[in-house]
């Protein structure tokens, strides 16, 4: 079976090429599809097993990052996307895609309804920054995208990546459900504890990525698609780094999961 992945494009999404390339190299049959083509024909979604919302600056991040694209998806494709998830398929949102997902409420998706429970907002530094971070996969997370991965090094490139839950109850629920997938940490794997630059944005509890209760819907601020070659790693000229960039495994996991189910 060919696992098919839809990579969303249009309106300022700008990591579609490398997300497409990463999914292809992970073994998926991937297509870049313009948002308007899906709105015109939502049935398109039926052909795919994976729906990816790549990073970028949808609508210039005007009003708030991801907000306008989130509303468009919610109003124009809400029902088909709910069905997509209910059908046991996979969704990933990276950076701006993650911002879109939390703002339309496709994450954390506690009860299958699109309700905004968390947000991603201005970094404490009030700056867009591009830097590499260390990430720890939360033990016991249900995230199928991170299966078998304990830690990751990936770049972050955002100005609005500070994760904030609505309240403590939401945060607690995320942990209880195994939905806290990825957290910023120190190079030695110890918690970042909010310390800059290990935690690059001031995210509550160093949270860098969350998933839905099924683990199939995943959003994260760092860019796995930007670490798919050894030479993407900033230290590749200094250290022994495996030929394949660590980020590619995230996409391989998704393809494997689809194949197995």
């Amino acid at each position: 079976m060919t696992v098919r992945a839809l990579v969303l494009t249009g309106f300022g999404i700008n990591c579609d090429a490398e997300t497409h390339s990463a999914l292809s190299r992970a073994g998926a049959g991937a297509d870049r599809v313009h948002l308007n083509d899906i709105i015109e024909n939502p049935g398109l979604l039926d052909r795919y097993h994976i729906f990816a919302i790549p990073g970028g600056f949808s609508f210039g991040d005007d009003v708030a990052s991801g907000k306008i694209l989130a509303n468009r998806l919610r109003y124009k494709l809400g029902a088909p996307l709910k069905k997509f998830i209910a059908d046991g398929k996979l969704v990933i949102g990276i950076c701006n895609g993650f911002q879109v997902m939390v703002k339309m409420g496709i994450l954390p998706l506690f009860d299958g309804e699109f309700i905004q429970e968390v947000t991603l907002t201005n970094n404490d530094s009030a700056r867009f920054e591009n830097r590499w971070v260390n990430l720890g996969v939360t033990p016991g997370t249900r995230c199928v995208w991170l299966k078998g991965i304990e830690s990751l090094e990936l770049p972050v490139r955002h100005g609005e990546g500070k994760f904030i839950p609505r309240d403590d109850a939401v945060l607690k629920k995320l942990y209880t459900n195994g939905q806290v997938a990825l957290r910023y940490c120190q190079p030695d794997g110890s918690p970042a504890n909010g310390q800059f630059p290990a935690n690059p944005n001031g995210a509550v509890d160093d949270i860098a990525g969350i998933c839905d209760p099924s683990g199939r819907v995943f959003g994260l601020m760092p860019h796995p698609e930007a670490n798919t070659f050894r030479t993407n790693h900033p230290q590749w000229t200094r250290k022994q780094i495996p030929q394949e960039g660590a980020g590619l495994q995230v996409f391989r996991n998704a393809v494997q999961y689809c194949k197995a189910t």
Binding site: C15, S21, R127, R157, A226
Partner: peptide, 15 residues
């Protein structure tokens, strides 16, 4: 320089 995205497109080798 930190505020410029220098890795979008996933092609960076020497940053």
């Amino acid at each position: 320089v930190r505020m410029y995205d220098h890795e979008v497109l996933g092609q960076s080798v020497l940053k």
